[in-house]
Write a protein that binds this DNA or RNA. Structure first.
Lengths: 351, 351
DNA sequence: AGGTAGTGTGGGAGCGCTCCCATGAGTGAT
DNA sequence: ATCACTCATGGGAGCGCTCCCACACTACCT
């Protein structure tokens, strides 16, 4: 006697078994049809599909997850407080890309914030329980332990913005080197002769690469790189102000600044304006990110655009692949696992 | 012989059975400890907890879901395109409230957009598969079929902003009536004598209630309600402009406007300014929502604040209750199932 | 004709848990 | 000492699926 019989019986959702009975086939066959296996004859497939439709059968995800040891869900992990998530268009663009790529998939997307210790502990628990098949990691700092946790748990993951040249995880990045380079080449072409740069936090790999691009662009144009024109910033507006102030003191005659984020460019602009320098006539200014700030600045800011939505799509693709052929990540072609997408210089009136 | 033995065996995650063996107790007992049942002796509980810690045991969610017929997840369904979700602080506040209330729970929150047909079909499929234990519904229009689908599927749900006075679902709302009333009472107290209102879309129940509050405030102050001072808007800036233009034409001498959303107030402000009316000296202006727009308007806008975050918390509470005592919703005390939270008039310089 | 592949199908076993029944030990009243 | 309860505990059955082995049955080669 079925002690639980009353629960599932009649009235509950139909099961595979019931569909099988209706279609006059075995349980295994229905499963094959549901999962799109090619090893089913056309006639049988049609019969099963009819039964599925008549009964309104919908697979039980929990049972499937238990039996197949997968969850059909991936997580987008945001190691930032919610406020930043809503404030920065970066995340919404990324989310749009991921969502688009997932939309013709059975995969479910979870959004998980890990902005504080409590949330991080929760996330760790969550991952330990293997409640997702894979993880999309955005905006990770160099010293974040999350990627290592993922590796240890053997959960497929893709990171946007590798932590270093030797990033172990598959990654998708925009061409920070090329972005920095194109900004400077543009300033050179414009006729600027004293080009400074305000860098991002140099513990962020991408920020380093932008500086590399700056250096190489100058060198390739036959100019000497003057290290005193390279000022460390921290991606903040205040940092931009500080660096610009210092720069103006060091080099009153400079005629171009490449700020490696729009926010820092905004800070620099304030200082330039207070110093009575006109943009772009006295000093040309170029930013990075092509954010809303850039478009609304006065004058509108030339900026390097990163294809964020496309990065989201690419990350998702990569992750789905990783999940599909679930073998030790290290045994696969490393080249396929590092994508770098091109950036684009958007010219506006500030240069 | 276990044909699958190789998969789960040694190296995989520990199971309940393994914890039981380690602690020297039965499977049932471990399950009781894990789930916090009181029917376990202290000594046994301690032994089990030790074993759990040593083995690093984490329950398998899929197995639990299958056996217990629940998912430990709820969904926040947003029947809007993503863009609006990010643009309007309403959602981020709501999300914060829900998240806070869930944070000391095992419940997982899913964010689901249903802004277009495709997404809606996906959602329907998702709900049919009972992949969540309950649903939080925000920003639902009067003719949305979603609530009925939920009812039919017998999925517990709570709606923010009931669709009518007779809303079948449990609901949480802010006191739209009281909000409208307090805005108008404020304008009366200020000495205004010709008070107009620009309403929201009247197929939204809350918008109607604000108008009711407007009417009653005037009536209770012993004033006649002049229907020509009630202009229909649609919550948009353009709608606010149109209504204000019409209003100015109808009643050149009006000295106060209650716009039932900040966005419409912004539209009205433009028209007033173009007409050379000073705010608040010539015309006092009050908005609704207390959004960022209100704070940044010139002059800063007096506005009715809704406790959105708190509404999120309340909805979550209600939903968790619904899920906990899962009986036909109709058999429960209806009073507990409709919450109305107070609004607050935030006075600024526009009135 | 016999053998060998291949192809479609049925169904057993098992995934890791919860639910519940049965059991045995302990407690206090008769 | 006996009975009636209560309380902690063990473990069987079952949740609905996937995986895979075994079994027809066909088609093609010697």
């Amino acid at each position: 006697m079925a002690s639980h019989g009353a629960r599932g019986r009649s009235g509950g959702r139909p099961t595979l078994e019931e569909v099988a009975a209706r279609a006059g086939v075995g349980r295994g066959t229905v499963s094959r049809v549901i999962n799109g296996s090619p090893r089913v004859s056309d006639a049988t497939r049609a019969a099963v599909e009819a039964a599925v439709a008549e009964l309104g059968y919908v697979p039980n995800t929990a049972a499937r997850a238990l039996a197949a040891n997968r969850t059909d869900a991936i997580a987008l992990v945001v190691p930032e407080p919610e406020t930043r998530f809503f404030a920065e268009p970066y995340f919404s663009d990324m989310l749009r890309g991921v969502g688009a790529e997932l939309s013709d998939t059975e995969m479910q997307l979870l959004l998980i914030f890990a902005g504080n210790d409590r949330e991080r502990r929760r996330l760790a628990q969550y991952l330990a329980a293997h409640r997702v098949d894979g993880v999309l990691l955005v905006s990770v700092h160099a010293d974040d332990p999350l990627p290592d946790l993922l590796a240890q748990l053997e959960i497929p993951a893709v990171i946007s913005g590798p932590r270093s040249e030797h990033e172990a995880l598959p990654s998708v990045d925009s061409d920070n080197y090329g972005g920095g380079r194109s900004a400077v080449e543009h300033l050179i072409a414009r006729g600027c002769s004293h080009i400074a740069t305000i860098t991002g936090r140099l513990d962020v790999y991408g920020a380093q690469r932008r500086v590399d691009g700056y250096r190489d662009a100058l060198r390739d144009a036959g100019r000497a790189v003057d290290e005193t024109l390279i000022l460390p910033g921290d991606f903040t507006e205040e940092g931009g102000r500080r660096a610009m102030t210092e720069l103006l003191a060091r080099r009153p005659r400079l005629d171009a600044v490449f700020a490696e984020s729009d926010v820092m460019a905004a800070g620099a602009r304030q200082v330039l304006r207070e110093a009575g320098r006109r943009i772009p006539d006295d000093v040309a200014l170029v930013g990075y990110d092509d954010s809303a700030i850039a478009r609304h600045m006065d004058p509108p800011l030339t900026s390097v655009r990163q294809p964020i939505e496309e990065m989201g799509r690419a990350m998702t693709d990569l992750l789905l692949e990783e999940i599909a052929d679930r073998r030790p990540a290290s045994s696969r072609d490393p080249e396929r696992r590092r994508l770098v997408l091109p950036t684009e210089l958007v010219r506006r009136d500030s240069s």
